[in-house]
């Protein structure tokens, strides 16, 4: 059996810890001067790919390719993936401000799959900016590959993949043959930090840049965002002086009695 090739998807998103503000036109969230980082679920996917290589051995996992679709700055996210341990990067570059919907991303991925011929595709279960949770499923559909979503544990023996999924009732274990698409859930692993020596090495790793046009994919938006608004601000509580006052407020102001 030849070695496994793993393709990992990484997306540049507004940092998980950054405070999100709706822009003044109410068309989306403010992204200028806001800290961006790798989507946390993608970070878990990258970590899992590296762990697979550490577990199975370098000869079994021959290459880990990180793929991102996004504006020029997405290269930073790719560098993080390379610093964590991916071998090479592929960047499908689009103009700043161009929104890529899950279907467009899935199509771009499927074209890269034709070129790179991976045996396993690891993605985050969803991106924390649009929370779509669709790309992995759509990609599996386009490729006609099996999919294992919400993975909290993953194992590969020969070309058999076993995935434990967190479902409502508990844990579900499924097995499938490779190639397959796996999306990572929060508890799959805890991603490593990028070490300085690896960050330095990552600078020398190759990043291939392509455009949707090169891949012959139409990324025109199919969905229209009507309006984005912030949730209503929570009002502060009050201290009431007596039980009577409390009942009065519950009855006449809150209207719950």
């Amino acid at each position: 059996m030849s070695g496994l090739r793993i393709l990992v998807g990484v997306k540049r998103v507004v940092d998980f810890a950054a405070k999100v503000r709706v822009n003044s036109q109410q068309t989306g969230v403010e992204t200028a001067n806001v800290k961006h980082s790798m989507n946390p679920f993608d970070e878990i996917a990258v970590e899992e790919a590296i762990r697979l290589r550490e577990k199975l051995g370098k000869d079994k996992v021959t290459e880990i390719i990180a793929l991102t679709c996004g504006p020029k700055k997405s290269q930073e996210t790719l560098r993080t993936a390379l610093a964590m341990g991916a071998d090479k990067g592929v960047h499908v570059e689009v103009a700043d401000g161009q929104i890529l919907e899950p279907l467009a991303v899935a199509k771009l991925f499927s074209k890269i799959v034709e070129k790179e011929k991976p045996d396993l595709i690891l993605l985050g279960k969803q991106a924390i900016d649009d929370d779509s949770n669709q790309t992995g499923q759509m990609l599996a559909g386009l490729l006609s590959w099996p999919q294992a979503t919400f993975a909290s544990k993953l194992d590969i023996q020969d070309k058999l993949l076993t995935v434990v999924r967190e479902v409502d009732g508990g844990l579900e274990t499924i097995a499938t043959k490779l190639p397959a698409v796996v999306t990572a859930d929060l508890r799959l692993n805890e991603p490593r930090y990028a070490s300085l020596p690896n960050i330095m090495k990552a600078k020398k790793k190759k990043i291939e840049t392509l455009t949707p046009k090169d891949l012959n994919v139409d990324v025109t938006q199919r969905l229209e965002t009507l309006k984005v608004t912030e949730p209503p601000k929570r009002k502060g509580g009050i201290v009431v002086g007596s039980v009577d006052e409390l009942i009065d407020k519950l009855r006449n102001e809150a209207g719950v009695l």
Partner: peptide, 15 residues
């Protein structure tokens, strides 16, 4: 001067 190091990649790692 230093033997190893890690650079935070996101705010979660910073905190």
């Amino acid at each position: 001067i230093i033997d190893d190091g890690a650079l935070a990649q996101d705010e979660t790692q910073v905190s």
